[in-house]
Design a protein around this nucleic acid. Structure first.
Lengths: 151, 151
DNA sequence: GTAATTTCTCAAGTGAACTTGAGATCAAGG
DNA sequence: CCTTGATCTCAAGTTCACTTGAGAAATTAC
């Protein structure tokens, strides 16, 4: 067991989150987490970092890009471990996004049988397609999938 | 207007789908569509190709990778334009996936407040996190996000 | 028939999210 | 104290989904 008050080493974080060590370091490069260093230059993580990484994983499963996740995590206090209220605020924000996503999927499901099955899927008129509003939004064609509305 | 029975040129397909010409060619490279060629070597598209591309866009918005979309499209008849029944079959298959995804998001939403807000988000115990079952599934850490279960 | 578009191919570049490898240093157990 | 294992940095490679650019040929518009 690593010393209780020195912070956890990266390998321990990897074991507990299921992430690769390289991925954890990458997330640091990307500004998602900011561990301390010990005398020898090794990273030492707080327990709250595990929770942050869990949040990263969950948000990723929802399809959010790391930039957006970083922005969300930026709302947490820097330097000191986040309070319960901090996490609740974050969770609230994401709940909204989840709601929106469920909404979109439900609308899609509702139209799918009638739309793909019939002859209307010829764009222009198709509600299903236009629901995403993809064509007009970004002049760049795809590359901006769901959850990447550039805020 | 392009000649009615010779098939549509790529620019017309681009205009009607909102896709970039380069993207449409890329989808062909990836085996999603297979237009004919005219005497001069230019691609000529069937109207059903527009519908296929619409399907690609929709499936992408759902988070499916092109490989999976290609697999789905492979269920359509080759050589001859798909019938209404063909499309319905495809739509049915995706309806299942949409249902599953809504299911997952709902479960997530249900737990989010209680889970991120409280102290349970320390893995091991967290239902929310374990719902994704990510840690044990693939020894490779992330890179397999939602909708990419390798079948 | 010529000029302006559109399309063609092929190679290379892009951004996101990581992984891999090399060579060096730090930490822990016996 | 010494060896084994964990960690460090930094550069480069990988996959996905495309875009960009160059140079050439086909098509369309006048």
């Amino acid at each position: 067991m690593p010393s209780p008050s020195g912070g956890l080493p990266i390998g321990e974080i990897a074991r507990r989150t299921g992430l690769a060590v390289s991925a954890i370091r990458y997330y640091e490069d990307e500004g998602l987490i900011a561990p301390l260093r010990n005398a020898g230059g090794h990273r030492r993580y707080d327990r709250s970092d595990i929770r942050k990484l869990s949040f990263v994983l969950i948000a990723q499963q929802l399809g959010f890009p790391l930039k957006r996740i970083r922005a969300a995590l930026a709302a947490l206090p820097e330097g000191r471990p986040p309070s319960k209220a901090d996490w609740t605020r974050l969770s609230q924000e994401f709940r909204t996004d989840i709601d929106a996503r469920i909404e979109a999927l439900s609308a899609l499901r509702e139209k799918l049988d009638g739309c793909i099955g019939c002859g209307c899927l010829s764009l222009d008129r198709c509600q299903l397609y236009n629901a995403g509003d993809r064509a007009a939004a970004n002049g760049q064609g795809p590359r901006y999938l769901m959850g990447d509305r550039p805020t």
